[in-house]
């Protein structure tokens, strides 16, 4: 790592410098996302008046936060070599479980939250178990659980309430204290910043530390980079991947809980389509579709780009159709950049 600082020595130095530079880039998969975030930030700061105002910032930060919490977990899962298409609809499923238990069965909100958390853990475990047990691509397995949960959300909600939404959380026991933890606001100046932003930062920081500074993080890279190699040296591949599916479900539970306590109402068809936004944010943040490479912090920044662009386009009074165009271009350029990194890292020299 001192290679660039070392004085040139013989014919080795040029090769050393070149390699050290590319390695530093390879080691920083979130670099591209950071540059993109700066560009988007600069662009909307200059072109719209509201973007930089405290209220504007609170709006795009909150949008980024509820996306970013799950995107960070999805990034870990993608580094571990798997996908979870059920993550989006899980935000609705967990909110529905919480709401049905507190509103229709009169449970304390905390107890309802605990049960929906257990539900999330169960779904995540089932996803992981099915993927490991069948050896099928997780894309297919979680597409199945995505559709199943979507049907369950609508079916159960309609059967219990006669409509496709559950509302009335405000009257439930424990709503105030639970709301304080998940859906309160923090006043900075005269602007109320949603507490979801803190959750987002905390989740991103925790995921980043786990990924880079723990044994489990090492295993995540290994099972995504080469599961057979990981297995050969004694890494519990199945357990690692299952835990990643559970993490994703629990992150979706956190967002579901934030939503239900903030809006006090949940639609049974909520959350559909979010699963791809999570994957897009993770890829913009430097994750490879093929696993083994990526960054948790990068996914958080990917979500930030998402939130800034989505709200910035609103502030600029453009048609929101342009957002999808922007997203597509962003995704494609991110994939191209990531693939360049991977080719460099996987290049076979003889």
């Amino acid at each position: 790592m001192t290679a660039t600082a070392a004085p040139p020595a013989g014919g080795q130095d040029r090769r050393t410098v070149r390699r050290a530079l590319s390695d530093r880039l390879v080691a920083r998969p979130e670099l591209g996302a950071l540059l993109g975030a700066l560009l988007v930030f600069g662009f909307f700061s200059l072109t719209t008046g509201q973007f930089l105002s405290p209220l504007g910032a609170a709006t795009w930060l909150d949008d980024s936060a509820t996306l970013g919490i799950v995107a960070v977990a999805v990034a870990l899962l993608m580094i571990g070599g798997e996908f979870d298409l059920s993550a989006g609809v899980m935000t609705a499923s967990t909110a529905l479980v919480t709401a049905l238990l507190s509103v229709h069965l009169g449970w304390n909100v905390w107890a309802a939250l605990l049960v929906s958390l257990l539900f999330a853990v169960a779904v995540g475990t089932l996803n992981g178990w099915l993927v490991m047990r069948t050896g099928l691509p997780s894309f297919i397995v979680t597409l199945g659980s995505f559709l199943a949960l979507q049907g369950l959300n609508l079916g159960v909600t309609r059967a219990v309430t006669g409509s496709v939404q559950v509302s009335g959380m405000r009257g439930a026991h424990g709503y105030a204290s639970a709301g304080y933890l998940f859906a309160s606001t923090v006043d900075i100046g005269s602007t109320a910043f949603p507490v979801s932003i803190l959750w987002w930062a905390a989740v991103a920081a925790a995921a980043s530390v786990v990924l880079l500074h723990t044994r489990f993080g090492n295993w995540v890279f290994a099972v995504g980079g080469s599961a057979p190699s990981a297995r050969q040296v004694g890494v519990p591949v199945g357990r690692t991947k299952t835990l990643l599916f559970v993490t994703t479900s629990v992150a979706a539970w956190l967002v579901g809980s934030i939503n239900i306590l903030r809006f006090t109402t949940v639609q049974a068809d909520q959350g559909v389509g979010l699963e791809f936004q999570y994957i897009v944010a993770a890829v913009i943040g430097g994750c490879l579709m093929t696993g083994g490479f990526g960054s948790a912090a990068g996914a958080a920044v990917g979500a930030l780009i998402f939130g800034m662009a989505r709200q910035g386009i609103v502030f600029a009074r453009w048609n929101s159709d342009w957002f999808m165009l922007f997203l597509g271009v962003m995704l494609l350029s991110a994939v191209l950049v990531n693939n360049g990194f991977r080719r460099r890292a996987e290049r076979v020299r003889r």
């Binding site: 090492n218 057979p228 004694g234 490479f293």
Partner: peptide
């Protein structure tokens, strides 16, 4: 040491070295 070497190409040398015995 089998032919596939049980190494993960995208991981750094030292992370590979200690993989499974960190």
């Amino acid at each position: 040491v089998f032919q596939d070497l049980a190494l993960v190409p995208l991981m750094s040398v030292w992370r590979n070295f200690f993989l499974g015995s960190e």
